[in-house]
């Protein structure tokens, strides 16, 4: 996993994977509160097998986003996910920095 991948590599990878016929989802940080590890607009691209590039949280919640993204690839409906310290009962993961982030996950079709 390459958390330091640049935006253009992430978006080019998303396009390339889709053109190769893979199911692809794009996750984007759309809102942050408190000390969030990655800024609004940060991207993570995920394929149907769970391969991914980029980062929405610097490693804290990528696993959960990847799992949700695979659902989005299957049913085609975008999802809004929220992660924060208070959410560990819902997601079993959270942000150790104490911030909250909202991540929009959409299928590339």
């Amino acid at each position: 996993m390459d958390l330091l991948a640049r935006d253009e590599e992430i978006l080019k990878t998303a396009e390339g994977w889709r053109r190769d016929g893979k199911g692809v989802a794009l996750a984007t940080v759309v809102e942050t509160w408190g000390s969030a590890p990655r800024p609004v607009g940060s991207n993570l691209v995920i394929d149907e097998e769970g391969n991914f590039l980029g980062s929405v949280s610097g490693g804290c919640v990528e696993g959960a986003v990847v799992a949700e993204a695979i659902d989005v690839i299957e049913d085609g409906k975008p999802k809004m996910l929220e992660f924060g310290v208070a959410d560990d009962t819902a997601w079993k993961v959270g942000l150790s920095c104490g911030g909250t982030i909202r991540v929009y996950v959409e299928k590339v079709d």
């Binding site: 935006d7 978006l11 080019k12 998303a14 396009e15 889709r18 794009l26 299928k107 590339v108 079709d109």
Partner: peptide
């Protein structure tokens, strides 16, 4: 995101 939008985005970038 439609592939056409993603593709146009990459072209502009």
């Amino acid at each position: 995101m439609k592939l056409s939008i993603l593709s146009a985005l990459n072209t502009e970038r």
